[in-house]
Nucleic acid binder design. Structure first.
Lengths: 93, 93
DNA sequence: TTAATAAGGTTTATAATATAAACCAAATTT
DNA sequence: AAATTTGGTTTATATTATAAACCTTATTAA
């Protein structure tokens, strides 16, 4: 049986990647709300995805407040697509 | 976003359930080979699925050797189907 | 006939992962 | 100027996954 990329086979990281597959970019606050995660957990998981090169994380400012913006990279997109293919063999779809 | 049943969102347990969805029953040795898992890991994960009522585990004898046979229950089947539906919302399929 | 090896597992210890709680700095409100 | 909010990060803890060690019975080899 195919291996399921463990970096993507995690609910929160998968949710983040799934969101980023469908938008140009998304900021920390948006991802936190959409995934209903805590800030701490999200912060850690974004770091992991970023370290793997699956997303790029830009820390900037929006007016006077910090703003962290994330977008998927082509490596991330590829990994996600491979993950979906592997998963399909488990789900019989 | 929908929750992914954590009992099924684990590579080895998902593989086991996936196999059991397609056969009447499967024994320990077969599952071990098909999933390429270690016996210890498989034993633990079968226990979890069994405790949750997702599979039934029969410990019998095949001639003079022990033989553990597993099959999916209707609860397991239902949980798997719900899991697949939830996952689809993540995968955009 | 008993020592070694294999088959089929289980138990337990360890490594990895996920999660939440505590914390921090700057801005805003009271 | 104290308290609260925003937007996070770091660190400690709980959970999970995994492998290593072990157990019992059966078989084979010496």
């Amino acid at each position: 049986m195919k291996e399921l990329n463990p970096l993507l086979h995690s609910q929160l990281r998968l949710a983040v990647i799934s969101i980023l597959m469908n938008v140009e970019e998304a900021d920390f606050v948006y991802l936190k709300e959409k995934t209903e995660s805590t800030a701490g957990n999200l912060s850690v998981q974004l770091d992991k995805l970023s370290s793997a090169g699956y997303i790029s994380v830009e820390k900037g400012m929006s007016g006077k407040r910090p703003r962290t913006t994330c977008s998927i990279t082509s490596d991330g997109r590829k990994a996600f697509e491979e993950y979906v293919e592997a998963l399909k063999t488990y789900l019989n779809i």
